[in-house]
Write a protein that binds this DNA or RNA. Structure first.
Length: 204
DNA sequence: GCGTAATCTAATCAACT
DNA sequence: AGTTGATTAGATTACGC
């Protein structure tokens, strides 16, 4: 409820989530797990989260960054010797542990979607505290809200690319955020001084 | 089967040391 | 300045209905 907790300095409000600082012990466990399976499923990540007392979403990010920056065995299989059968494809018998299950798909109710969409039209790039507030409001984890915004932006940008000028109708009735990185001609080579993406200075 | 949540890569921003 | 967590666009995968 909008308490007036704002202190003098503010608040850096809407922006990124605070940078997580993993302890050595946490890192040890993370790295150890990574070396065994660089693509952990939901269950594994959940277990890890519990074990090192961190949110599962932070673990997800950590694995993404780790994969991007450090080499890793792409083949979890590839042990010392592959089962002498080279071509044994027709053997459903033991399915190799190809992939662990992902997180269960969340289904949003109509009212939840309404809330999300409304927020999206106001600001398609919500900061951490906006996301948390939203999450609390509709009763889902903040990480789900973040993913929802990602997917929503993606869809909208894709749609706009396909139909250059078609969202006018929607703009009439609703709002459709216009600051969604409109692929403008920002490509003037030698410019961009300290200009961060786009002005985020919009009502908040 | 479709719509879209979840996962992923690549690039980038940015906090911390 | 290098390391690394966080965010983004965008492509892909795979569930729930």
């Amino acid at each position: 409820m909008a308490e007036d907790t704002y202190s003098h300095k503010m608040v850096k409000t809407n922006h990124r989530r605070c940078r997580t600082k993993f302890t050595e012990e946490q890192l040890k466990i993370l790295i150890n797990t990574f070396n065994q399976k660089p693509y952990p499923g939901y269950a594994t990540k959940q277990k890890l989260a519990l074990e090192i007392n961190t949110e599962e979403s932070r673990i997800q990010i950590w694995f993404q960054n780790r994969r991007a920056r450090h080499g890793f065995q792409k083949r979890p299989e590839a042990e010392t010797l592959e089962s002498s059968q080279s071509q044994g494809q027709d053997q459903p018998g033991v399915e190799f542990p190809s992939r662990e299950a992902r997180r269960c798909r969340t289904t949003y109710s109509a009212s939840q979607l309404h809330t999300l969409i409304k927020a999206f039209m106001k600001n398609p790039y919500p900061g951490i505290d906006s996301r948390e507030e939203l999450a609390k409001e509709i009763g889902v984890p903040e990480s789900r809200v973040q993913i929802w915004f990602q997917n929503r932006r993606s869809r909208l940008l894709l749609q706009r690319k396909r139909e250059p000028v078609a969202s006018l109708e929607q703009e009439e009735q609703g709002k459709i955020p216009e600051g969604l990185q409109g692929a403008e001609d920002t490509q003037n080579g030698t410019n961009f001084t300290s200009d961060s993406h786009f002005s985020e200075a919009r009502t908040w």
